[in-house]
């Protein structure tokens, strides 16, 4: 028997429906069409796509927030949209996420401590001291310190706050983390530091990632496999970077051409 993948997405389609006043027919817009892919345990799939390709929608579908009209999302063998409460609770804990905007991902009225302890409170019965200990461990693991426990989100920089979001995501030791443009709003230096952290955590905790991004360089530095999403369709998948560079698909070619060379003189881009 074939080994079961951690996440198996089968022919998922999603469309937004708009109610049109005074018209009997609703207008609908297809965002995702027949998407199928899988993620193995301990690997990272980089999902590349331009703006409006349906990347974030796909992320939400996988996270169990937007039910797709068609298709199946299997996580650890459970269909996440047709699971009973107990199973749902189980896969929910193993499937976490980090979003793009670090500031809007945290409640502005909560301290770092209460932000990170929220998932712990929901799943584990810990005493106050145990919880405090766990939060300090997580803070230190993501490169912050005990001093930051009582700070509020506005007292952190974007990069530090993203570290807190990561700490919250790894608090329950999940299997898969969906990283939806998680480093895209950070500057290059912070980006590479966060990517480094993500790589370390992946090795330490045996995590798998779905890394959704428009940034080819960031995707290369973390992904084991790559997929390209274009207008709601998963057009190509690659097992190595070389394959991506050899691809003949026009959309991939466009994406490849848009990578800026290190020095302006070497740019191949023709506009």
């Amino acid at each position: 028997m074939k080994r079961m993948s951690l996440l198996q997405v089968t022919e998922v389609s999603y469309s937004y429906n708009f109610k049109m006043p005074l018209k009997s027919k609703n207008r609908s817009e297809n965002v995702l069409q027949d998407i199928s892919f899988s993620i193995e345990e301990g690997s990272c799939l980089g999902l590349l796509g331009t703006s409006g390709a349906g990347k974030s929608t796909l992320g939400k579908v996988i996270l169990g927030i937007q039910r797709p009209q068609q298709g199946q999302v299997l996580f650890q063998g459970h269909d996440i949209y047709n699971a009973d409460k107990m199973t749902k609770r189980k896969w929910r804990r193993n499937l976490q996420a980090v979003f793009q905007d670090s500031y809007s991902s945290v409640n502005p009225r909560m301290t770092a401590e209460s932000i990170i302890s929220e998932p712990l409170e929901n799943y584990e019965k810990l005493t106050l001291t145990e919880k405090r200990k766990a939060v300090i461990f997580l803070l230190e693991r993501v490169g912050l310190s005990e001093k930051d426990l009582k700070k509020y989100p506005h007292q952190f920089s974007g990069g530090q706050l993203q570290r807190i979001n990561i700490a919250r995501a790894i608090a329950l030791k999940p299997m898969l983390i969906v990283l939806d443009e998680s480093v895209s709003s950070l500057d290059r230096v912070t980006q590479s530091l966060i990517l480094e952290l993500l790589n370390e955590l992946k090795a330490d905790f045996g995590l798998s990632y779905l890394f959704i991004t428009h940034d080819i360089k960031a995707a290369f530095s973390i992904s084991d496999h790559l997929g390209v999403l274009e207008k709601g369709e998963l057009i190509e998948c690659y097992d190595s970077k070389a394959q991506f560079f050899e691809s003949k698909h026009p959309a991939v070619k466009r994406m490849r051409d848009s990578i800026l060379a290190e020095h302006p003189r070497h740019r191949s881009l023709t506009v």
Binding site: K60, L63, I65, R89, R92, R93, L95, Q96, A97, F99, D101, S104, S105, V106, N107, E118, P119, N122, Y123, N165, R168, L172
Partner: peptide, 16 residues
């Protein structure tokens, strides 16, 4: 706001 989505993902109930 994403923090509401994040709370759902953290397993918080609607009430919480």
């Amino acid at each position: 706001q994403s923090y509401i989505t994040a709370a759902k993902i953290s397993g918080s109930s609607q009430w919480k």
